[in-house]
Design a protein around this nucleic acid. Structure first.
Lengths: 253, 253
DNA sequence: AGATCAAAACGAAAGGAATCGAAATATTGA
DNA sequence: TCAATATTTCGATTCCTTTCGTTTTGATCT
């Protein structure tokens, strides 16, 4: 049996029972305990388990919340830089709309201290991050809850937050297709984004480079409706020159 | 069992009940008390608990989230029994409204498997617990976010969830005063509860014994508006006999 | 209330078994 | 032959228990 295969088996055992002992593993696989220990050390370094005296234990259970965490970490550096730039757009005495998504959660977390700012959002995790902060009035926009983004679906923008007209709306994109339309996986989500865009005078789109030139089924809104795009430089060839001709302000971070 | 795993279990027990006794832990895990004491010493050194004579107690609540946890564990057993009874009221093909609060979060967590049930709630933590469950359509009722209960303030019940009329509403109480009115700490919250009551044909109130005969500033609604009260038996003297004369169905668990 | 006393809980120390890490050595496979 | 993998060896560490003298606790008695 190959070493890699054995490590995979160890992971399976760990997922099954939540723990594994060095002695028993060595016996099962017919190798020395030193070998098992080195396996565990490698797997521990990869954060796939936690090595302890006598063996190893499984990592704390991966919930749907953990799946969101993982998305959070994908392309993390670019998202953080984009979020930093976006957060700087927020100033005192404004009302702001937040879409859902991992990049916008970053924006919320990096928001500077402000006074008298009203935030309306469809994202429960953003609302929960911001609600403890002073100087902020947080509104949750109601609607059917969509599990994968931990956010609500908005069917009618007029009823949301009593017809609030915000100074700025921060939108994220699942993807941006070849025709420079922001597109998403379902009409429900696309409609929600359309409604959020309609709620604000100025629209800011955050989108890291992995989002560009990818298709999806439902159009949310056109890039021409956006006032400021914040993205990073590592986008597919050709996109950037076309984007610069569009007439929309774009910031690369 | 690995030592590390045992310490993890001790932490879980501590989070559940807020305390742990050396003797009982030693017996449960089948190790000597000295071993448990050394575990507690290690966990204390890591600032994960506070070692005391006879065992250990959980760390004092620091964050608002921890404050909610603490409320969750106060009178935990009674709340769990009340929640069990309340959860049994939920059947297929119904629409339900959930107020916020630790007891109602328990109800949500103990909800049996159902089909085609619509749940509307002001509590973000309840929405997040239920959104992954099959057979459920979860609606978040929008509004200003109130940090201490992780829930929204509803100003207008007509606009919430498109004027949904639910079969049942589950309400909790901050307190119930001498005049048998459900009262709360602020008019905002009281108004929210009034609106939730108005949204449903049948109103179920969950209230453990610590809530009775206590005053607060703002009246939400009268007990006469309630169809079913679920509480426990350990309430102040005199209340129970008066309650039975009220004409509202009361279940003691 | 304050004193008294027994049970419970404690810390420190000692010792044995299991486990560990490091380094040198052996095996395997391209 | 080289590099990856596995093993053996051995002193160090960790874990857990037992023992014993001390402290804390809570109930009882003035």
């Amino acid at each position: 049996m190959l070493a890699e295969q054995r490590r995979h088996q160890i992971m399976l055992e760990l997922q099954r029972t939540g723990q594994a002992r060095t002695t028993q593993l060595a016996e099962n696989f017919g190798v020395s305990e030193v070998t098992i220990r080195s396996d565990l050390e490698i797997l521990d370094a990869k954060k796939l388990l936690i090595k302890t005296h006598g063996g190893a234990i499984a990592l704390p259970a991966s919930s749907p919340a953990a799946a969101f965490e993982e998305r959070m970490n994908r392309n993390f550096d670019a998202k953080r830089r984009i979020a930093q730039m976006a957060a700087r757009q927020i100033i005192d005495n404004q009302s702001i709309v937040f879409d859902s998504g991992s990049t916008l959660l970053q924006v919320a977390m990096q928001m500077p201290p402000v006074n008298n700012v009203v935030v309306a959002t469809t994202a429960m995790n953003i609302a929960q991050h911001l609600m403890y902060r002073p100087g902020l009035d947080v509104h949750m926009i109601g609607g059917r809850v969509f599990p994968s983004t931990v956010s609500t679906i908005v069917s009618d923008s007029d009823k949301a937050v009593g017809g609030l007209v915000a100074h700025q709306a921060f939108l994220s994109a699942h993807a941006i297709d070849h025709a420079f339309d922001v597109v998403d996986v379902s009409e429900d989500i696309a409609r929600t984004k359309r409604n959020l865009v309609r709620m604000a005078r100025r629209v800011i789109l955050v989108a890291d480079s992995s989002k560009w030139d990818i298709g999806a089924s439902s159009k949310a809104f056109s890039l021409s409706r956006v006032d400021l795009i914040i993205t990073d430089t590592a986008m597919p060839h050709g996109i950037r020159s076309r984007l610069d001709k569009l007439g929309v302000e774009v910031r690369y971070v």
